[in-house]
Design a protein around this nucleic acid. Structure first.
Lengths: 233, 233
DNA sequence: CTGTATCCGTGTTGATACTG
DNA sequence: CAGTATCAACACGGATACAG
């Protein structure tokens, strides 16, 4: 054998692909690398800057985030845009097709919610908490409620609009809301999913509710978790 | 350095977790490693042996498959069982919770079907082709058809039961079917998704149809692919 | 302050060869 | 058939250093 070590250009070594026509395999070729899906999750509520993405992803390092953003841009999942002055910041934004990935998060989230090993006390980003609300809403319980709920999660604010057993969520200024939750995402998660009482969280000064308190309490009960899967054996 | 090679116990071999309470992140902790989901895909139609799993996964190496099977077993996604004599073979089988992962494949497959980069000419395993049928069935087109279709894909046989705009698929002997397709999975894929005419594939001796030919032709048209996503810019 | 590029230690992955 | 052992290549993450 002559060609012992061809000097392969680093860029030509692209990637490891599954050689498989299966749609799921192709999806994993595009977004199956470590962190890729979580980067997309952080962008599900609108464009973000590099460091805001990074802030929602505890443990990712800057170079890895750069690589993922490049890869996702090449795949057509997101684009990088320059905001017009005066903001003049660079942001990353999902393409229309990128936003269509939401059912993937829902399927993963619903399935993982039944995992015996799921630990809900870990850090929770605002993006993922809101995604989980859309995933876990019980349409039957929400039937008949028409209301707007605001969230102040750290520096970000969101408005959820409940109507017809359906929930719409948008990032942005809180206008015309009937109730507002203010607190860190894990605290709100403890209230909605962890069965923590609103009073105890308020007394610990971890969560605050303004506006229609009865509505807020009703809202917190709209997101039942599924039962855990049986461990085998 | 004294401790050149500490004999680390294999179980202490933690892998890298996302420290994130998000359900999707936890799902990726469990099944996000390379090959893990595709191993599950191969088991979606029932228990399989090591080498049959491997055969459906072009490119996986034996040691990686071993590791994934161990990991998935530890996660509670599958169990290993010893078949009773005379078969007496070891097989891997999804747990009930493991089977519940099908929506993940559907979400991934549906999303990837709109990828501009999807190449349907790559190898296609029987398991993934049948999974794609369940994903892509158009209930409206299937309305009013009540029929049983058999598939001989290599050594495996499957029966699909169409009723009420819904499809059920099971591996096993072909009993009481109205039509049978015989051929390699990529060929059947070309017929159903690639727009290849049945006649041309039969003339090339790549596909054979027995039984109700009109039904077979109707069946082939029940699985429309979505349009491709626009490349950005 | 925001993002990118580079080095480096470590752990993961994968091809090949080998064993029960 | 069902894996294990070995080794090389690579990906990850941390820590910088650097550029606008």
């Amino acid at each position: 054998m002559k060609l012992r070590k061809i000097t392969v250009k680093p860029e030509s070594r692209r990637h490891r692909w599954y050689e498989d026509a299966c749609g799921a395999a192709h999806a994993l070729d595009l977004i199956g690398e470590r962190w890729a899906l979580l980067v997309m999750r952080e962008l599900m509520w609108g464009p973000k800057r590099f460091s805001d993405i990074k802030a929602g992803l505890p443990g990712i390092s800057a170079n890895i985030l750069t690589q993922r953003l490049e890869g996702l841009e090449a795949a057509g999942v997101l684009v990088r845009r320059k905001l017009p002055p005066p903001a003049a910041a660079q942001v990353y934004e999902l393409t229309a097709w990128g936003y269509e990935s939401e059912p993937i998060f829902q399927a993963l989230g619903r399935w993982a919610a039944r995992s015996p090993a799921h630990d809900p006390t870990l850090p929770f980003s605002a993006a993922s908490l809101l995604l989980s609300l859309r995933t876990m809403l019980d349409p039957l319980r929400a039937k008949g409620i028409d209301a707007r709920i605001g969230f102040r999660l750290g520096v970000e604010t969101f408005t959820a609009h409940l109507a017809d057993g359906h929930i719409e969520i948008a990032r942005g200024a809180l206008d015309n809301v009937d109730a507002i939750f203010t607190g860190a995402p894990p605290v709100l998660a403890a209230a909605i999913y962890g069965g923590q009482s609103l009073e105890s969280l308020e007394q610990a000064d971890a969560l605050r509710v303004e506006g229609d308190r009865a509505l807020a309490l009703r809202f917190m009960a709209l997101f039942p978790l599924p039962s855990k899967a049986e461990p085998p054996g």
